[in-house]
Amino acid sequence: MVPIGHYLVLAGTLFAIGAAGVVSRRNAIVALMSIEIMLNAAILAFLAFARLHGDLRGHAMAFFVMAVAAAEAAVGLAIVVAVFRRRATVNLDELRELKG
């Protein structure tokens, strides 16, 4: 059996990649994808811990997180489409009408 440390290192790495992606990439769709990677890192950590404890609640949590992530992605992409129709760009740096 693969020891838990391996899973946790992988989850931590995925989380860092996701967080770095949101911070550094300016395309809104790539930012949403990076957020998905962060959520998946958390799911992986939940599953690894569930295996460690021999407990099913971590698995249940993973399913719920997947469903919520799908809902969030649907709403997020719909909003990206709405922005693109108005402004013909999805670059976060060019969306600067609101400030002060």
């Binding site: 989380f15 957020i35 909003i79 402004r87």
Partner: peptide, 18 residues
Amino acid sequence: RASEAALKYVIYGGVASG
């Protein structure tokens, strides 16, 4: 401005919940 606000909200919110 509403769509722009919503997009910023989604991205900040997604990161925070992650």
